Amino acid sequence: MATKAVCVLKGDGPVQGIINFEQKESNGPVKVWGSIKGLTEGLHGFHVHEFGDNTAGCTSAGPHFNPLSRKHGGPKDEERHVGDLGNVTADKDGVADVSIEDSVISLSGDHCIIGRTLVVHEKADDLGKGGNEESTKTGNAGSRLACGVIGIAQ
């Protein structure tokens, strides 16, 4: 089992970053940390998408990683996509320092995120509470600013 993974985020604009993942036990939580720069100040949706395909930019990554066919939600919700990591918060300089621990994603097994795409979005994720159909699919997080395929790390 891989215990570490990394993702280099890039987009068409100024947004870029490096996100690290570490899972010490196969059924334990995954620590997610790193930094994203070039964002507007505020909240930005942060999700693992189904495919590791960036051939047409971030759009070819498909929908959120959702092997259990659930509705979109927040990272602490029972009803959520596996890939729903909530929001990252950018400061006035456009930098989001990421520090998350998640017990639904994994670096092995059915919820493995390796080979899938991590995406940072234009807007805040409403965590499935926006009151419309799009909220239950995407959290109304808007366009995909930057993305990268999650790969095994040393």
Rank of each mutant, 00 (worst) to 15 (best):
A2P: 04
K4N: 10
K4F: 09
A5F: 11
C7W: 00
L9V: 12
G11Y: 13
G11S: 13
G11V: 12
G11T: 10
G13V: 12
G13D: 08
G13T: 15
V15H: 08
Q16R: 14
I18F: 10
I19K: 00
Q23F: 09
K24R: 12
K24W: 15
P29C: 15
V30R: 04
V30E: 03
K31A: 05
K31C: 08
K31Y: 09
V32Y: 08
W33E: 12
S35H: 14
S35N: 09
K37P: 07
G38Q: 10
L39Y: 03
L43F: 08
L43C: 15
F46C: 13
F46M: 11
H47L: 02
V48Q: 00
H49P: 00
E50K: 03
F51P: 00
G52W: 01
N54M: 15
T55N: 03
T55Y: 03
A56V: 09
A56G: 09
S60A: 04
A61M: 01
A61P: 02
A61W: 01
P63W: 05
F65K: 02
F65W: 09
F65S: 02
P67Q: 06
L68P: 09
L68S: 10
G73S: 06
P75V: 09
K76S: 14
D77M: 13
D77C: 05
E78A: 09
R80T: 01
V82W: 11
G83T: 01
D84I: 02
G86Y: 02
G86P: 06
N87Y: 00
T89A: 08
A90R: 05
K92V: 06
K92I: 09
V95P: 12
I100E: 13
E101W: 10
D102G: 11
S103F: 15
V104S: 09
I105V: 12
L107R: 01
L107Q: 03
L107F: 09
D110Y: 05
D110M: 08
C112E: 14
C112L: 13
I113M: 06
I114Y: 11
G115C: 00
R116F: 00
R116D: 00
R116V: 00
L118T: 12
V120N: 02
H121E: 01
E122A: 12
A124R: 10
D126S: 04
G128V: 02
K129L: 08
G130P: 08
E134G: 08
E134R: 04
K137A: 04
N140K: 07
S143Q: 04
L145C: 07
L145T: 13
G148V: 00
V149D: 04
G151A: 04
